[in-house]
Every structure is written in C-alpha cells, then in structure tokens.
Amino acid sequence: MTSVLERPGDVADVAAEGVSAPVANSMKAKALHTAVSDALLFAAPASARLPFLEAVRLEFGGGQLVAVATDRFVLGASRVEYAGESFMVMVAGNDARALVKMAKTLKRDEADRAVTVEVVDAGAQVTFHFSTGESMSVRGLDVEFPNWRQLLPSDASRMGGIVGMGYTLAYLGRFTKARADEQGAGAQMVVFPSVTSSGKPGPTAIRIGEDFFGLLMPIRPPGDEWQFERPSWLDEASSVAVSGAGEVR
C-alpha cells in the first residue's frame, strides 16, 4: 500500500499506536531513482501472477542500498550509496514505480536533493521523505523472495567452457537500459557465460560498470549444444567474384 503523506504528524501517529519509533537514514534522490528503476527492469509483470516476483527487494546497510528483482529468466542487482541503519523491505511493483517517479530528479538538482528514510518495525513500513517536500509511505510485502545470491557464480570455474549461447532478445534488451547514465557515458557491458555442473549452458553473468550485476538465463539448444555454422549467404557469389576480379588492374 502506498500513500502520499500530507502532514508530518502522520508518522508520529504510527508511533503513538504502540509501534516502535522510526529510524532516520539518508541518501541522494538520484541514487534511489537509479537503483529502483534498474531493478524494476527485471521484475515480473503483474500478468505473471507471482506476487513474490512482482516486486523489488531493497537491502539497506553497510553504506549501500542494493535493489534486486527477478522474473526467473533475468535478474538484476543495482548498488548505490546510502548512510544509515540496516534493514530489508520488499516493495510491490506498483509502489516501486511510484517511488521511481517521485525520486526522479532534474540534473541541476541531483547534488542537493536528498531522501530521509524512516523505518518502522524493521521494514514493515518505510517512509521516504524528500528534501523538496514530497513524502511516500510504503508497507513491505510479506512474501519470500528467492535466495538470489545463491544463483550468482562465485568464481570463474564454470566459465569459458561453451562457445555458443542462445538468448531471448527481449530479455537481453533489458540490460541495455540498466545504468542508462553510465552506459551513455561509455560504461561497458561485460558478459560471462557459464556452464552447469552437467556441462550444459548455464546463466550468463552480466556486469555494467562497478555497481550493476545481472544474470541472463540461456535458451536451451536444440541438441546438446549450439553448433556454429557460417551462413552460406555470407559467401561471395562466384559471379560477383569473377566480375570483381576483372575490374582490378
């Protein structure tokens, strides 16, 4: 549930009802927008009818906010700077989109516009107060998100063993939209195809700069593996080759 707070007393009213007092934390509005909008690219749509995947997981703590989402076919995790207490909250997709809209900041204001994050009951309710006056309250979803860190390759031991990998273009395209500002400034996308323990194509790890990490699930090959074959139409037609050779003097 999302609500725009119209008066400062709304937060105080919650505490007065016997709920533990909120804790203040802070970050830049631009950073919040970047992390949540990145993660939303990888969340499941409402049509999937999977509430635990139609959401963004926000992990605050250790000097950073990590926003992560997955629809089972792709996964994206985006990191930005944050100062404050450690907590986690699952934000519904609609709430996350509303938060992104509110956090969007004009370039001239990026250095000054900040967010204070108030937390009640370890993330059961989170309120985002913007220095420009807007506020938004989000109630965390009571759903179990996949143990996403277990899906990530821990080292390079299963990488480089397969030449051909098949991908769904629509899924691959989502990664071209993550960290849009950094990609526009020349940040590179680096991919690391992997294999499973049985030698089959596994998830491809994708890095964009230093603060984005994703996974792209491959398409199963028609046989045991994808076989490279150069298309015959790339070969120069004999008539073209002959006519071209005759013109050289």
Rank of each mutant, 00 (worst) to 15 (best):
M1Y: 02
V4G: 00
L5V: 05
P8H: 05
G9W: 08
V23P: 00
N25K: 01
N25S: 15
K28Y: 08
K28V: 00
A29K: 07
A39F: 06
L41M: 11
A43D: 04
A44K: 01
A44M: 03
P45H: 04
A46L: 14
A46N: 12
S47A: 11
A48G: 01
R49M: 11
L50D: 14
L50F: 05
F52V: 04
A55C: 15
R57L: 15
G61A: 01
R72D: 09
R72I: 12
F73Y: 14
V74A: 12
A77I: 06
S78Y: 09
V80L: 10
V80I: 13
E85M: 05
E85D: 14
V89A: 07
M90H: 01
V91Q: 06
G93R: 15
N94V: 14
D95N: 14
D95G: 12
A98I: 11
A98V: 11
K101V: 01
A103E: 04
A103R: 03
L106V: 00
L106F: 00
K107Y: 01
R113L: 12
A114G: 06
E118H: 11
V120N: 09
D121A: 15
A122N: 09
G123T: 06
Q125I: 11
Q125R: 14
V126I: 05
T127D: 07
F128Y: 14
M136E: 05
M136V: 13
V138E: 10
G140K: 09
L141W: 01
L141K: 06
V143Y: 08
F145D: 09
N147T: 10
N147D: 15
W148Y: 11
Q150D: 14
L152F: 10
L152I: 13
L152Q: 07
P153W: 07
A156W: 08
A156Q: 13
S157R: 14
S157A: 15
R158Y: 12
G160K: 05
G160H: 06
G161K: 13
V163C: 03
G164N: 05
G164F: 02
M165D: 04
Y171W: 06
Y171P: 01
F175Q: 08
A178S: 08
D181Y: 03
E182I: 03
E182T: 02
Q183G: 09
G184W: 04
A185V: 00
G186A: 02
Q188K: 15
F192A: 06
P193I: 03
T196S: 10
S197V: 07
G199D: 10
G199V: 08
G202C: 10
P203T: 07
P203H: 05
T204W: 04
T204R: 03
E210R: 12
F213Q: 11
L216I: 12
M217Y: 00
P218W: 00
R220W: 00
P222V: 03
E225A: 12
R230V: 07
P231R: 09
P231G: 12
S232N: 11
W233L: 07
E236G: 01
S239I: 10
V240K: 13
V240C: 02
V240E: 12
A241E: 10
S243Y: 04
G244L: 09
E247P: 00
